[in-house]
Every structure is written in C-alpha cells, then in structure tokens.
Design a protein around this nucleic acid. Structure first.
Ligand code: FES
Ligand code: FES
Lengths: 144, 144
DNA sequence: GTAAAATCGGATAAAAAGGTCTTTATATCT
DNA sequence: AGATATAAAGACCTTTTTATCCGATTTTAC
C-alpha cells in the first residue's frame, strides 16, 4: 500500500505531533527509537517532510523537529502521503495503465475508484491533533 | 497498491478468460501483446498462476493457456492477487507493524481495516466471467 | 571554540522487475 | 515409430528501483 518511506514518514510525523502538543522538540535519535526505524533513513524522510513544511527542523544544540501547535489540526495524513509517495495512490490505475481514465477504463476501474476515493477521503479528513490524542491515551501505538 | 507482477497477472488472466469463453487457447506471445507486458516476465507469472491452478497450461504444438469455461464464474480477482502477492494487502498493517492487531493497533488501524475489507470484498465478489464480458463488449480495456 | 544537532552527497545492500538460454513436453509430418 | 517444429517450464543472470548506511559539512547554543 504505502512505501516504507511513507510508513516511517507517517509514524515520525505522528510522534513529533504528539510531543509538539506539549511544546516539546524531539531529535532524530528520539524519533527513530520511538518508531523503531533506521536512523539515517529516517533523517532523509524528515528532510522531505521539512521541505514540504509539514515539520519544522532546527539545527544545532537543542535542535530537533517540531510542529507548531496551531498547525496540528490543519495537517492531514493525506498531506504526508502526498509529500513522500506523491499522489499515484490517489489517481493511479489499479492495473498500471499509464493514466487512469474513465472514458477507456481498465476492468477494475469502476470498483477501484470507490476504494481509492474512500482512502483519499479518510486520509484527508484526519488531522494530526486527533491522531496524537489517541496516541497519548495509549489507545494506539507506533511500534511493537 | 499491487505489484507489477500482480498487475500483469490480473490482466493476463482476464485476457485468457476472455478467449476461453469461446474455447480458444492463447499463447504467451499473444498474451504479452494483448496486455502490453514484458514477455519473459509474463511467462514467470503465468507459471505461478498455473501452479495455483487458476489457469491451465499445455506445452507443445498448439499449446498455450486456457481456463475451463465452467470455472470462469468461480474464479475471483482476489484469488489471483493472493496467488501472486499473497495476502499482506488483506491483513497487513498500514504502517508496517509486523502483524496487524486490533488489541494494540497502529494509529491508522480503525480506519484502515474498513478500506482493506472493502477491497477484499470487492475483489472476492468479482468473477472472471463478468469481467470478461465487459471486455468483449469493449466497455473496458487491458492496454492503451 | 566546542559539542550537539540537522543537512547534504554519495555509497552500499536488498528486493523487484526484466531478460537469456536450455530443457521438456506435445502435436504433426514423414 | 521417429524426426521435427512449437510452446511452456526451469535455471540463471542483469538492470532498475527501493531501502539503508556512512562521512563530511553546516548550523546553533553554551
Ligand atoms: S483506468 Fe484503471 S483504475 Fe481507472
Ligand atoms: S495495526 Fe496497523 S492496520 Fe491494524
């Protein structure tokens, strides 16, 4: 479904979001430990996220990653996925035709668009604040 | 969503199904041409499909691939996906946790299972006969 | 100035995708 | 029956993409 980069990207962002609720800033090492991801690889993904201005990064001593508290309710999971994996998941053909086109559809098109749209809506209507709250309630986890 | 192998596998099976309606048997070369796929790679996928007894293969002169007409309504797209990509799509965690578990769910679990199940149902409730009929009506295409 | 932290450029490893050649099975034609 | 052409099966190799790692550089607080 998602690439490994995207999985790590989502988990990293959620962890940052959780800590950012209390105004805490977290380091790369903390993130990698919290989500159980390869540290150097995670760094690259965070760069992408930073360039897409989904997270803020600060260099130097006491640096790290954070998200402004006011932004938390405005950032959706869909934005993260788009920043990392692009939107082929949201508009690509299920059977790999160069472009999905309802005028000359592949045999899965009519049923696939329903699922694709459902996925898109679900991700678009989620926001970091809600997801982070479930995290610190212990209702969900980022690693096991 | 699906691997390239799976995409080719589905398209190949659908093409074979279409021809098998009229009792025709098709060769590897015909299949690869019809679905616009790399010929040798397609051969490998067809071997998997043959071993899963989703298609029948016959060696030698006038050999090729076919599906018994009576089987067409009994084979679902889900079977094809499972034979090639396994069922990680149907039971795997969206965020890459080793196993998806509702007791200790990842933050996407509750929303993701809905989509996953919808996909599973959709694929399970489709059968080759229906899909093949749309193909020969020209309502859908396998390449462009 | 020094230590801590992210950035950057590239190197390496692993997996997915695709290709080549040989072998085996099968129908048809001597 | 035997030779031959055809078509899939099987073993192995190459390329491409994805995933992961390393070292040098820059930025910042103390
Ligand atoms: S054409 Fe294949 S999903 Fe739309
Ligand atoms: S635990 Fe992640 S989808 Fe179920």
């Amino acid at each position: 479904m998602f690439s490994k980069s995207c999985e790590y990207g989502i988990k990293a962002t959620l962890f940052i979001a959780q800590k950012s609720q209390w105004g805490e800033r977290v380091s790369l090492k903390e993130i990698a430990a919290a989500i159980d991801s390869p540290i150097a690889f995670t760094a690259k993904i965070l760069q992408v996220l930073a360039k897409a201005s989904i997270v803020n990064s600060t260099k130097g001593l006491h640096g790290g990653y954070e998200i402004e508290k006011e932004c938390l309710p405005k950032i959706s999971l869909k934005q993260i996925v788009q920043a990392i994996d692009g939107n082929r998941i949201f508009d690509g053909c299920a059977l790999g035709l160069k472009i999905c086109n309802a005028k000359e559809p592949c045999p899965m098109h009519s049923q696939f668009v329903i699922i694709r749209n459902k996925l898109s809506e679900t991700l678009a209507s989620s926001n970091l604040l809600n997801v982070a709250m479930n995290l610190n309630l212990g209702l969900t986890v980022l690693k096991r």
